[in-house]
């Protein structure tokens, strides 16, 4: 890989991070929860208000507060949670691994299966197999995630069904217990995302299959396997990688929110959800900031991966 290209990408990331954090901080300060009135009760005096505001640092200039926020993000010294009094960094350290462990298998499976089905549908485009896969995808996309989650819970986790897995909870200490708790959420995540993934990957693959160079390879005797797994797949890596990289931050934070609240799993999604409802600003600041940073990171890594898979980027 080209070192100058990487350096440039990383440097481009810095203003992006500044911009993202600035906008989100702006929104939080002017539209987010204000703790003053929560602390003071119903009839505070003007002195009391200004005193609390000084104590909270609300009276300082906006840019100074933004500076503090940046320092907090860089040092990961994110203050204490309003509701539990625990350091935010400790909460994140405890919950983030849980969320990642929760969504990772479903994320990988959902993308791999979507890729395989998309490739299959694209190769047999217009034939009955394609129609079958595509109609199934539409059905999958149309069924509400609530139905999928609750349906799976009834089928797999209750005496009405197979009663093999727990409905809620996350007491993971080894591989066996991990599989015990992760199986049903994984199935749910795969079923919820598979339709979208399959449709996206099919569209990408059809576009690649219909490119001129595929016909050239065919004219020189390339087998369907070579066409698909060498030419089509390698060429489609750019849109595929982009989709995967960009869904990473989304899946870790919001995808897990859905699963965690329905399966009662103490991950970062649940923490965020609770922080939103209780107005726990230190946690919100941390999550919003880190999501932004994660997005920019994903973007930067994505650009670097381009140079690995596309010679037009690496060797202009």
């Amino acid at each position: 890989m080209n070192r100058r290209y990487i350096t440039r990408r990383v440097l481009y990331g810095i203003p992006l991070i500044l911009g993202v954090t600035f906008v989100s901080f702006l929104l939080m300060v002017y539209f987010g929860p204000d703790k003053t009135y929560e602390l003071l009760g119903k009839n505070p005096t003007t002195e009391q208000i200004s005193e609390v505001r000084r104590a909270l640092g609300y009276d300082r200039a906006f840019l100074l507060r933004y500076g503090d926020y940046l320092r907090e993000l860089v040092t990961l010294d994110l203050g204490l949670s309003d509701s539990s009094g625990e350091p935010v960094s400790v909460i994140l350290k405890r919950t983030l691994p849980v969320s990642i462990a929760l969504v990772l298998p479903g994320f990988i499976l959902g993308n791999l299966m979507g890729l395989a089905l998309g490739l299959l549908a694209a190769w047999y485009r217009g034939k009955w197999l394609d129609k079958l896969v595509m109609s199934a995808s539409v059905v999958g996309m149309s069924v509400s995630f609530l139905v999928i989650i609750i349906g799976l819970q009834i089928l797999l986790c209750t005496p009405y069904g197979l009663n093999l897995f727990p409905v809620r909870g996350w007491q993971v200490h080894d591989l066996g217990s991990y599989l015990y708790y992760v199986t049903v959420p994984t199935l749910a995540l795969v079923l919820v995302t598979l339709g979208y993934n399959t449709r996206f990957y099919r569209a990408v693959m059809v576009e690649e299959i219909e490119r001129d160079h595929i016909r050239t390879a065919q004219a020189y005797g390339a087998s369907p396997r070579e066409l698909l797994f060498r030419h089509v797949l390698k060429n489609s890596l750019i849109p595929v990688l982009t989709r995967i990289m960009f869904s990473v931050p989304f899946v870790v934070i919001s995808g897990s929110l859905l699963l965690e609240s329905y399966f009662g799993i103490p991950g970062i999604g649940l923490v965020t959800f609770n922080a939103i409802t209780s107005g726990d600003q230190p946690i919100l600041k941390a999550v919003v900031g880190l999501t932004g940073v994660l997005f920019v990171l994903a973007l930067t890594v994505n650009d670097m991966l381009y140079s690995l898979v596309d010679p037009r980027v690496a060797k202009p």
Partner: peptide, 15 residues
């Protein structure tokens, strides 16, 4: 063997 019309797109760009 066949030689195609548009050499810009007839060859695979990633190999």
């Amino acid at each position: 063997a066949m030689i195609f019309q548009n050499p810009g797109t007839a060859l695979d760009p990633v190999f």
